Computed example of a mutant assay.
Amino acid sequence: MILILKNGVSDEQIDRVIARVEGWGLQTHLSRGTYRTIIGLIGDESQVSQETLSSLPGVSQVIPVLPPYKLASREAHPESSVIDVSGVKIGGGQLGMIAGPCSVEDRERMMRIAESVCESGANLFRGGAYKPRTSPYAFQGLGEKGLEILRDVGDRFGIPVVTEITDPRNVELVAQYADMLQIGARNMQNFVLLTEVGKSSRPVLLKRGMSATIADLLMSAEYILSEGNPNVVLCERGIKSFDPSTRNLFDVAAVPVVQGLTHLPMIVDPSHATGRPDLIPPCALAGLAAGADGVHIEVHDCPEEAKSDGPQALLPEQYKQILQQMRLMADLLGKTISPLAGTAGKPDHSPKNNPQPPTEALA
C-alpha cells in the first residue's frame, strides 16, 4: 500500500507514522515530492487494515497496490480458471448453458422440462428447492423433497443440477443432491453462508447482489476461495435501477470488467436481469458477445402455472430457438457449449479441478 500524507505534515508526524508502520512488521520507503510526501509499505499488509492506516495522524489517503480480493485476482492467478461441474466445463472458451424452472415443482413437470432443455442443448439443469421470497406467504420451495426430484432429473438425463442454498445449516444436505450450489443475489453478502459453502467441494454459482458493486461481488467470492473452495462461477443477474421498464438493469459491461480483474469465469442471467421473455434472447446474445462464459435462463412449460417467477420464463420452444442462436454466436467467437460428460448418478465428494492458488499470492 501507499500512504499519501497531508500537505504541511511535520517531520515529527512522518517519523511517528513510520515508527507505527514498522512496529507492525512492515518496511517503509519515504519519498518527498514538491507537493506531496508519500510512504510506500513493503511486506505482509494483511497485518494492518486500510482503515487503521487512514486513522494515523498526518495520513491523507491510503492507496492499495494490490486488490483486497487476492485469491480472486488475476495477480494471484493470471490464467483464466475452468470450473468443472461434474464433467461440464465453464470457462476457457467452454460455455455453461443453465436452464430450468425457478422452482422445483412436481416430478412429471420437472422431467418434461428437463427433457426439452436437454434436447435443445442445455448442459446444466436448475431448479430451486429452497426459495428466498420477499413475502413470507409466497411459495418457499419443496425442501428436501425438491432436492430428491432434482437429483432424479439429473440421474435420468445425465445432466448436472444446480440449486440454491439459503441456509448455512443446509449446505451438507444440499451438497448430497446437487452438482453445483447457487448463492442467490439476496445472499451474496451472507458471509456465514459463504464461509460454509467455501468448506464444501461443490462448485459454486455466485450471483451478484441487486445493489452490489463489482468489488463487493469479488470480495464475496474471496470468502469462498479463502475457505479452500476454488470452484466459483460468477453471475451477472442485473442490479437495481430507477427505471421500471425492466425488473433490473442488465449490466452487460460488468462481464468484461470482471474478467479483467479476476480469473474466475462469469456467466449472465438475462431472466432475472430483465424479467421479460421478449428481452431475454437479445440480452443473452449480448452477454455472450461481451465475453460471458455461459447463460442462465429460466424455462417453464406453462409459465402461468409456475410456483414462482413464471412471467420471466421462456417456453421450451423459445429456449430451443435462442440456444440455436447462442450456438451460432459461440461458433463466431471461437467458443463451444461444453458437452455433457455422459455419466449420470450422484456426484462424488472429491475436490474438483483448479487447485488453490499458491499461498505466496497472499503476501
Results as ranks from 00 to 15, higher is better:
Val62Asp: 01
Tyr177Lys: 10
Gly143Thr: 11
Ser49Gln: 01
Phe139Ser: 11
Leu332Ile: 07
Ile224Pro: 05
Tyr130Phe: 15
Lys145Trp: 13
Phe139Leu: 05
Cys102Glu: 01
Pro160Ser: 08
Glu360Lys: 10
Ala273Phe: 00
Lys199Cys: 12
Gly334Gln: 04
Asp309Leu: 05
Asn123Met: 11
Ile280Trp: 03
Thr134Pro: 01
Asn353Pro: 15
Ser86Lys: 14
Ser73Ala: 07
Glu79Ser: 12
Ser226Pro: 02
Pro351Val: 01
Thr34Cys: 01
Gly143Val: 11
Gly96Glu: 11
Gly93Cys: 11
Asp293Phe: 07
Cys102Gln: 00
Gly287Asp: 12
Met210Ile: 13
Arg109Ser: 04
Lys6Ile: 05
Val48Ile: 15
Pro265Arg: 15
Ile149Val: 14
Gly23Trp: 00
Ser350Cys: 07
Val117Ser: 00
Gly209Glu: 15
Arg169Lys: 11
Pro347Asp: 03
Val299Asn: 04
Trp24Met: 03
Tyr137Lys: 11
Pro347Ser: 11
Ala286Cys: 02
Pro57Asn: 03
Ser120His: 02
Val117Met: 02
Leu328Ile: 07
Ala286Arg: 06
Phe191Ile: 12
Lys335Cys: 07
Asp84Val: 04
Met180Glu: 12
Ile90Pro: 06
Gly33Val: 04
Cys283Phe: 15
Lys199Leu: 14
Asp243His: 04
Glu75Asp: 12
Gln312Met: 09
Glu298Gln: 01
Lys131Asn: 08
Phe157Tyr: 15
Leu206Asp: 11
Ser120Glu: 03
Gly238Phe: 02
Gly141Arg: 03
Thr213Cys: 05
Gly342Pro: 09
Leu261Asp: 04
Leu323Met: 14
Gly154Trp: 06
Val153Arg: 07
Met188Gly: 06
Thr28Leu: 08
Trp24Phe: 05
Ala330Tyr: 08
Val192Ala: 14
Lys240Thr: 09
Thr359Val: 15
Met329Gly: 02
His300Arg: 04
Ile322Phe: 06
Pro57Ile: 01
Leu147Phe: 08
Met110Ser: 05
Arg109Thr: 09
Met210Ala: 13
Thr274Ala: 10
Ile297Gly: 03
Lys131Glu: 07
Leu193Arg: 02
Glu172Pro: 03
Leu41Ser: 12
Arg202Ile: 12
Leu26Lys: 04
Asp348Thr: 13
Gln325Met: 13
Glu51Asp: 15
Asp155Met: 08
Gly260Val: 09
Ala290Ser: 05
Pro64Lys: 08
Leu53Met: 13
Gln140Asn: 08
Ile18Ser: 01
Thr246Arg: 09
Gln318Ala: 14
Val299His: 03
Gly121Tyr: 06
Gln182Val: 12
Phe157Ser: 10
Arg237Asp: 09
Val82Tyr: 14
Arg74Leu: 14
Gly92Leu: 11
Pro357Gln: 10
Arg202Met: 07
Ser60Trp: 06
Leu53Cys: 14
Met329Leu: 03
Asp44His: 09
Leu53Arg: 12
Phe139Val: 07
Lys346Gln: 13
Leu362Gly: 13
Arg32Gly: 09
Leu41Ile: 05
Thr359Lys: 13
Glu108Val: 06
Pro270Phe: 07
Leu26Arg: 03
Arg107Trp: 04
Glu317Lys: 03
His349Val: 09
Met110Phe: 04
Gly291His: 00
Ala330His: 03
Ala286Asp: 05
Ala284Tyr: 10
Tyr319Gln: 01
Ala212Ser: 11
